[in-house]
Amino acid sequence: MTTQTLSRAELLKQLRTTHAESVKRAQELLKEQKHMQQELCAFFREKPRTVPEAAQATGIPADKVLWFVAAMKKYGIVAEAGMCGDYPLYKKVEEN
């Protein structure tokens, strides 16, 4: 098998080349997500906030914020912290 002869780094490099297009898309997405995570985490660190508040503060559309908050919640980056009217509040989980 040819792949066995390739080193790990070479293999990954080769995969990046063959998937150049999707890698480019993914890199852009990652950049956006990093930015989003930074802004949202900063916002939720101050005090528990709702999704519309976060959307207004960051200028990111509310549905996108919600999607990302749900993702961050799943991976333990933010947590729910009660309700504000009809909206759940989210806060940043502080790492120990």
Binding site: P52, A62, D63, L66, K73, Y87, P88
Partner: peptide, 12 residues
Amino acid sequence: YGRVLRPGDGKE
């Protein structure tokens, strides 16, 4: 979401 929220802005 672990609860029922609307996807537009997270309102219950």
